[in-house]
Design a protein around this nucleic acid. Structure first.
Lengths: 340, 340
DNA sequence: ACATCTTGATAAATCGTTTTCTTAAAATAA
DNA sequence: TTATTTTAAGAAAACGATTTATCAAGATGT
């Protein structure tokens, strides 16, 4: 293996000088600098990261931790991160955050002890608290994206789920809908609670009736939405909601399948609006393109890399927090009741 | 920061003893071992990877390098890798292989110098040769999945594209098709050439006519397949092929869109068979579910992690090579001409 | 009772860098 | 010319682990 020592030897200088050349220090004779550079390129020398990281406690690398990294849901997020990575010339390592506690801890310890010097964590759950606590108390720099905690101390990138949900209801209202039910996913995820709150606020703001019946819990498997949607379609016309708002694509897709299975049509017989709007990623879904609230995941991904870089460079001083707004993505699943 | 030195101090032993306890050496008094362990857990000590990697030139981590990691195509591959990772208790880092040469080299140097000690590379192209050459000559352990080289020296996992393509043609033949054209993708990818060869072999084996017209080049954007399919549908009935075999889903989807755009139907008017069969991942595709050749990507992903681990542990001695067979996935795009 | 062999622990060297401390030489000031 | 400052390079000490060589004490054999 070619080391700094060997390079020094070949160039007839001391290791310190080689190091200075590599790190671009000022005080080195141009002639010697060239000689060293030549030897470096001839030998194909590259400094060992372990040694480097050991002495200056920096690697320059960033770890991105995501639970179920393989899911197509992360397409845009990863794409954004990828583009930022090349733009910022950073080394980014993508890691799958395991559900197994033991595994997860080992992974974190591995990464934080000499591999990377900052982290981005997507969608941390309540159960991830020990990890966050650990990072935080050891002053390891990190950014959370859509986390489950309420702590303004942390660097975080958020999505305005509350306003997003409100806008969904308002959009339905503009299209003449008043009887709108919510298909609500896992309440252990903060994002779902925020969407619930937004829904409730908008409903009262619009002056629509809001009873417990308006909220259908889909807390387990998303296939519950199939049955729940069927139940709704079996209601008498005058009582039946004219629109369903769901907290996720998975739920929306199941709901639509339930509706279609009884011979009803979307949006002719009932409208469906979703949060996420990436239905093309749902396997085997052939129904109408979903209308829904779209999260700017590409931007979020890009910004996360950019922000953590800036934090590391001292250009941003923590705590850093940024909230992204959602947009409405028009598909084919919402009927305008005002027209004919 | 709590180091081995501090732990030693607190436990009233030497650093060497602490090291022995951590690495489970035999010759240490049970009483002292417990004392050290207690201090370790109390202080939350974790050995520094950089230091460790420096001295024993091992990190135990594996890097997975994929071009365009974010693409949903890798869903099953990553899922397999993920499951293997937890099963084998390994640290796996997923990396996006940049198209930019500079970027890519930096990345490789970073990873190979103290971060990971083995690698899995998916779908390396001819242009990646310098990377492979480099790894190979420095004896860095790696496995290639579906690479573009013909070198039995390398550890590799392959998919039997040749037989897969043959089986596709045979399947079409069984369903009464004789006039089968191939929509052939980028010839710079070895997999496509293999599929082409399999197609040709099966065609002659079946005794079907095989003229240059039978092979339609879709070398640029897959949207070329749209026009090509239209051209085929405009042919007179007696000359028109009864089936199209495509080397990828992207091409198949575009071809079907072209067919449908002229008012024809699939598979009533023409059959389509694909290689990959993950059409659900194609954005905005609402056509019939594709019939095609399915690659066992989950298994390949799982095996890759397992194999590189075994290689590192000396359980497998290089060069290691394994070829996976494909299966036929029946969808709705192939019509049986023998029936009615 | 003396020599030999185990055990269990330590001291010190090492891994490949960076950086601080020195020092010799060159440049400037008096 | 001599004294002082600046500059460029080398020597040596970290960084945090592991490991080899070393050594003392206790166990065993004669």
């Amino acid at each position: 293996m070619v080391t700094v020592k060997k390079v020094a030897e070949l160039a007839n200088v001391s290791p310190s000088t080689v190091s200075r050349v590599i790190n671009g220090a000022e005080n080195v004779n141009p002639e010697i600098r060239e000689r060293v550079k030549k030897v470096i390129s001839e030998t194909g020398y590259f400094p060992n990261n372990a040694a480097r990281s050991l002495v200056n406690r920096k690697t320059g690398a960033i770890a991105v931790l995501i639970r179920n990294l393989h899911k197509p849901f992360f397409y845009d997020l990863l794409r954004g991160m990828k583009d930022a990575t090349t733009a910022m010339h950073k080394c980014v390592l993508f890691c799958n955050l395991s559900d197994e506690k033991e595994e997860r801890n080992k992974y974190m310890q591995f990464l934080t002890n000499g591999i990377v010097d900052s982290m981005i964590l997507y969608g941390t759950l309540y159960t991830d608290w020990p990890i966050i606590e650990n990072l935080s108390s050891s002053r390891f720099p990190f950014i959370l994206i859509e986390n489950n905690f309420d702590n303004s101390q942390f660097n975080q990138i958020l999505i305005n789920n509350f306003d997003g949900a409100m806008n969904a209801v308002r959009f339905l209202a503009e299209n003449g809908h008043e009887r709108i039910v919510l298909f609500m996913g896992n309440p252990n995820k903060k994002v779902n609670l925020e969407r619930l709150n937004g829904y409730q606020r908008a409903m009262t703001e619009c002056g629509f009736t809001l009873t417990p019946d308006n909220i259908v819990n889909i807390f387990g498997d998303s296939s519950q939405a199939f049955d729940a949607a069927q139940a709704i379609m079996r209601m008498p016309d005058e009582k039946r909601p004219t629109a369903i708002f769901t907290t996720s694509d998975k739920i929306a897709v199941q709901a639509i399948k339930g509706i279609l299975s009884l011979g009803f049509r979307v949006p002719e017989d009932i409208s469906v609006m979703t949060f996420d709007s990436q239905s093309h990623l749902e396997e085997e879904y052939k129904g109408p393109t979903l209308t829904g609230i779209k999260q700017p995941l590409y931007d979020v991904g890009y910004e996360s890399i950019s922000a953590i870089s800036d934090i590391m460079d001292g250009k941003i001083k923590p705590p850093y927090s940024r909230t992204y707004e959602t947009t409405i993505q028009k598909g084919e699943t919402v009927r305008n009741l005002n027209e004919g």
